[in-house]
Design a protein around this nucleic acid. Sequence first.
DNA 1: CATGAATTGAGAGTAGCTTCCAAAAGATGG
DNA 2: CCATCTTTTGGAAGCTACTCTCAATTCATG
Lengths: 212, 212
Amino acid sequence: MSSMTAARISPPADRPRPGLRERKKIKTREAIRAATYALVEEQGYDATTIDQIAERAEVSPSTVFRYFPTKEDIVLTDEYDLVLAEELRARPKDEAWTDSIRHIMLAAARTGIKDDFEVAKLRTRLLVDVPAVRSRMMESMSVTGRLLCGAIAERTGRDPDSLEVRVHAMSLAGGLMETSLYWAENGHQGDFPALLDRALDVLQHGLGEEDS
Amino acid sequence: MSSMTAARISPPADRPRPGLRERKKIKTREAIRAATYALVEEQGYDATTIDQIAERAEVSPSTVFRYFPTKEDIVLTDEYDLVLAEELRARPKDEAWTDSIRHIMLAAARTGIKDDFEVAKLRTRLLVDVPAVRSRMMESMSVTGRLLCGAIAERTGRDPDSLEVRVHAMSLAGGLMETSLYWAENGHQGDFPALLDRALDVLQHGLGEEDS
DNA sequence: CATGAATTGAGAGTAGCTTCCAAAAGATGG
DNA sequence: CCATCTTTTGGAAGCTACTCTCAATTCATG
């Protein structure tokens, strides 16, 4: 689930030597993000303008937009969806795919939160407070949904574009997102992995003693 | 599900006489919406500016914003969530609440599409084409989610704010929204109520021969 | 070191959206 | 019918996210 609390599970691994250009790009990207996080903590999201971000990151405003299409993306973007997909594919193929998802989400949440508890909290808080951010996050939810479609299709042999698979994937994604929201709304009490576990139960088995 | 394909199930009913002021407000509101629909059909969503909308609706741009907080809302806003909630409450209380939802959604979809097939198509098409609209729609999904929380809580006696109920509600909302998207992406083939029916099956019973 | 490609900065421009104030129009009581 | 009060409207000014273009700079390559 992008921008939620996911983390790199496997390290970037072996890359020969990116060349100065690439390294500078990465540095700029992180400078912008760092500046944004800092400013948002200081003044709040809306009060933080792109110009301020640019100034603190020591780049021009145009550069900021070259790196991130929207302001919300600076706070939200991560590249974990891809990692998640890989990990999903790496699970034993005879494992129930619901279990695969459970394992991966839990692992991601655990390491993610350990890695950067403050960032995770800031992000989820913004999710609750700033409509634009929540909105953008929901956008990314549909990306995650498509991703899940692929995974589900692979395991069950169904058509990834079928209504059934898509509905199921999206309902999963929606439920997982709500979990993050719930966590943030309740002041980040309790540990997130435990919440995730409960949420996944509901998503797998419904609401318990129900009447379906 | 707001902005999807819902329709008034029960007519506005008995209101004494709204007074000229109220009537004018409603007329203005609908003028703005009509103007927007027309312009969007002619030129596309992005190419349509607020000024154009204002001009065609014969109001000032500021008035447009007085009636709709954002451009997306002009296309999306409807008041059916409330109606839906009422209808939900009107269902027999001993009915399985999943069945209640099924009945209401199906009824709403049927009459809604009959009422205004073109608008329903335009809306869902925008949902697919325009990220901002899709985004806004997802926002409203969370409103629908909260609504479902209330309904579910009433029937099951659970806490509407509990993680379990919220996750379940949101997964429902997500699945239903994906159904609209699916319908639109496939060129509005097949009838929507049938799709809804299949989607609700998945949401109630999972993906069939699975391993949970 | 020279040439070519990619990255950046600066500036102008668009459009969504907010805010504020004065003018117009509907409601209310005499 | 008029006077007053309230609500609604239009106009203008302004902020900011975001886009586009072009020249300058920086890195890569032979």
